[in-house]
Design a protein around this nucleic acid. Structure first.
Lengths: 170, 170
DNA sequence: TGCTTTTAGTTAGTATGCTAACTAAATAAT
DNA sequence: ATTATTTAGTTAGCATACTAACTAAAAGCA
């Protein structure tokens, strides 16, 4: 019993929605073990990476762009991290409007602690897939993300595959 | 240049995180066109489905379980839908603790309106994939969701593919 | 130079999600 | 039957996200 093209589309769509929800519910308690949220981890990880490449601090806008989060959300997120003593925020010297955010010693230590656990956490999450399946999964996600990004700017439908029937031969 | 197993795992993991964010950012403005949020659509769609199967109303707990959302969130979500006149909420006769939620005429009309647009929206989102890719995508999502569900209850790692732990014992 | 526009970030207000702690009703146990 | 426990939902308080509207600095242009 083969599903029709539009049925497959809906199944794929709904499968992604469900997996996203379950994934989220799985990650929250993981980060909570370190006293942070997933969004906070996103900030800390970015800062840690940039630091390793010799960049001293990121601006709020840079962080927002990388984490797919809008300016007001970044403000609050960083504000809380500052209160927690994990990052420092100071006005940039070159541009008086911008703020540079950087890890504190305490923040750096926390990132190191999370990174030690991270590979095993990712592997536990992905443990249902063989290596080949993980490769497929990765490729599909990259394709999906690229497409969603193009939709974001190019507004219109951008139907790479205009007619589903015509595609079956692909 | 082939990636090592642990690198593939991380790429897959990160790809999913990024795709989830982009997907979310894409769906919000879509539902906003109808004056609702994605979470509200989830409630309305469930009620519509149950209605078609002859069930008059769902309890708050049922809704929460299906939408992967906890009781306090359901309370607020339904509260807002009631204020918008899209659903009705009344105490169940059998169990005085429970509340039955059902679509109003206005809510039913909105669902019909969204459903008319829905297939083309899903196809636009999934348009980067051929039918075969959509099938792969769907299968991977089902496997992923099943695994994440089992982790939720069975806590422990559940490494179906134990070769991983040998690779990443850091 | 001086005015206009753009850019960086914040503030206000709202929606969605959570946990912890609560009320009240229904079950279970003694 | 009475007490204890579980279950359904709410409330309070917080974190994260958004849009709209704002301030202030930088860039553009005339």
């Amino acid at each position: 019993m083969k599903s029709s093209p539009s049925e497959v589309t809906e199944l794929a769509f709904r499968g992604f929605v469900r997996a996203s929800g379950l994934f989220r519910n799985r990650m929250i308690p993981y980060f909570a073990r370190f006293g942070i949220s997933g969004a906070q981890w996103g900030i800390l990880r970015q800062l840690y990476r940039e630091e390793r490449e010799g960049i001293s601090g990121l601006r709020l806008g840079d962080l927002g762009r990388r984490l797919l989060v809008r300016p007001p959300s970044v403000t609050g997120l960083v504000e809380r991290l500052v209160r927690m003593g994990l990052v420092a925020r100071k006005t940039a010297s070159a541009d008086q409007r911008a703020k540079h955010v950087s890890l504190t010693a305490s923040g750096r230590k926390l990132v190191a602690r999370v990174l030690k656990q991270h590979p095993s956490q990712m592997q536990s999450i992905m443990a249902c897939f063989s290596i080949d399946e993980q490769r497929d999964f990765h490729h599909l996600m990259v394709k999906f993300a690229t497409h969603l990004e193009s939709l974001e700017n190019g507004q219109a439908g951008n139907l790479d595959h205009p007619q589903f029937e015509a595609l079956e031969a692909r």
